[in-house]
Amino acid sequence: MIPGAFDYHAPASLEEALSLLSANVDDAKVLAGGQSLLPLMKLRLAKPEVIIDIGGLAELNYIREDGDHIAIGALATYTDLAESELILDRCPLLAQAAVVVGDVQVRNRGTVGGGLAHADPAEDLPAAVLALDAEIKAAGPDGERWIPASEFFITMLTTSLMPEELLTEIRVPARDGYKSSYQKASRQAAGFAIVGVATCLKESADGTCEDIAIGVTGVGDVAYRAEQVEAALRGRKLDDSAIAGAAALVTGGVDPIEDVNATPTYRAHLARVYVERTIQAARAE
């Protein structure tokens, strides 16, 4: 359980990090909190020759209001997210998802940017990021670009970040009048999501669904938006039968994965139950 040999760099600035990354584009892995990368390296499932440790870049560690958005630096930890007054006030869904990631130690060390860039299909945060229509900032040798969350996650452990790009910020539109819930099924309290559902919705006084966004993680090989469920509910009265009927669409077009924790059939069933439960929980908020 000792990683193979690697060269280690701790750049002092984002600029230096980017040039190191460009110089080692085929061999390098970026290390932030290390909660996903280090276990893979210890099992020698990942054997990078170069490690670029960006953990010391204070310029990437922030959570702040930025116009009509909330901006989160890539190095903010899950604990930062879960405890931030700003997040709790303006987009609590992020905090609801962050507070159930791993255990206390993982949340204290693991970073938002690292978790998203790693794109583990059972990671909690992608569901929330998708539901919130977040955008992800990628910095590269040719400057910066914004990637919508819906275009960020490609497949298992793969994102649309280019090898020479670094994820530097997540930007979430601050919306008023929305209610939200994140719930997950996992083997243990600190376990990965077998199914995780992030729901935020806006309903009128008579219970009509004005808007709804549902992010689903753990089910397919990548987190996704349950667009069929959303479409079935938008503009509808949110009664039990409408919710149940719509929830059945959660795995439409998705192949649920099979692993030691759940069969595809059970995963699909759980996804449906958790869609129903997060909608009910959000409404009761």
Partner: peptide, 24 residues
């Protein structure tokens, strides 16, 4: 412990092994 039909062990970490934590 869970094995597949080829005798590969699928539960080689405590995460997959499914032990109850104090919370459960």
């Amino acid at each position: 412990f869970v094995y597949d039909d080829e005798g590969q062990l699928l539960t080689i970490t405590l995460t997959d092994y499914g032990k109850c934590s104090t919370a459960e």
